[in-house]
């Protein structure tokens, strides 16, 4: 009994820290979302989320996060597969992984600057397209401060993150599985559908959930890129915390709660699907 007490003491600092600076603050927001200014229980805040402005901000945020996570997964997968099994020279892998390590952490304000300098109105690519090919992407309706602009920017850290996570998983596919499938008459497509993808499924799903949460909670890039002109959820919440633009602090809590629910659901979906996919794992 005393032994157990002592053992727990060893992890006390960790739990105290997690409680004070992670769990309690989050709980506080969640509780705040269900309280009125007098501290009484209410569902009015959540009902307030149904205002068109907030609904549309969630809709566009979810759209951007889905698109950047999906594209990030697809493109990252293609690049990782090219390096692992695509028959390109082996030396490419090292630099690609190093670069992915860097780029996956190159988020936030400087990333926005980089894309403004590249695809902004006077950015390099914008200018070159106009001068060399006569294509004016802005006249064609492109705008960096838009759904596609933001998605394109987020991909800069989403793709490398996918590469970093999926490359080891791809390398874990044994050559014998492929050969066994082939000798049993499977085409390349059948091998992927029946063997490789199901084996990779948990990793793919987990990465997708991570990428989704990653872009759903991203504030800095969007803020530096668009100011407050694009009403995605984190930007609106940012403005709310700074200046109570919703004129109702508790509506802010409800919004933050909504964010937790969305990322939480994404990860819950992952956990459930993973559990189902993992019957065959130890």
């Amino acid at each position: 009994m005393r032994q157990i007490g002592w053992n727990w003491l060893g992890v006390l600092p960790f739990f105290a820290f997690a409680l004070l600076f992670l769990v309690l603050p989050t709980m506080n927001i969640v509780i705040g979302a269900f309280q009125n200014p007098q501290g009484e229980f209410t569902l009015a805040n959540l009902a307030g989320l149904a205002s068109p402005r907030i609904v549309s901000s969630f809709a566009i945020s979810i759209k951007i996060s889905l698109a950047s996570a999906l594209l990030g997964c697809l493109i990252g997968f293609a690049m990782a597969a090219a390096v692992v099994m695509g028959g390109v020279p082996g030396w490419i892998k090292g630099p690609l992984m190093t670069f992915s390590g860097v780029a996956s952490n190159f988020a936030g304000v400087p990333l926005a600057f980089a894309f403004i300098a590249t695809l902004g109105r006077v950015g390099l690519v914008t200018m070159l397209l106009r001068q060399w090919f006569g294509i004016n992407i802005y006249a064609m309706g492109f705008n960096l401060l838009s759904f596609w602009g933001l998605t394109l920017t987020y991909l800069f850290f989403q793709i490398p993150l996918m590469i970093l996570i999926i490359t080891p998983a791809l390398e874990g596919l044994k050559r014998e599985w492929r050969e066994a499938a082939e000798v049993l008459g499977a085409s390349t497509f059948q091998y992927w559908r029946m063997v490789a993808l199901p084996i990779l499924f948990p990793s793919l799903l987990g990465t997708f959930a991570l990428l989704f949460a990653n872009s759903f909670g991203a504030v800095a890039t969007a803020y530096a890129l668009t100011g407050s002109s694009l009403s995605i959820v984190p930007i609106m919440l940012f403005a709310q915390i700074r200046g109570d633009v919703l004129q109702d602090p508790h509506l802010g809590y409800a919004m933050a709660f909504g964010m937790i629910v969305v990322t939480g659901l994404a990860n819950l979906a992952y956990v459930v699907m993973r559990a189902r996919a993992e019957r065959w794992m130890q």
């Binding site: 044994k174 014998e176 599985w177 050969e179 000798v183 063997v195 084996i199 065959w280 794992m281």
Partner: peptide, 12 residues
């Protein structure tokens, strides 16, 4: 073909 490492598909 039978392989030294069995090579059964772990997901099936």
């Amino acid at each position: 073909m039978v392989f030294q490492s069995y090579a059964l598909f772990p997901n099936l």
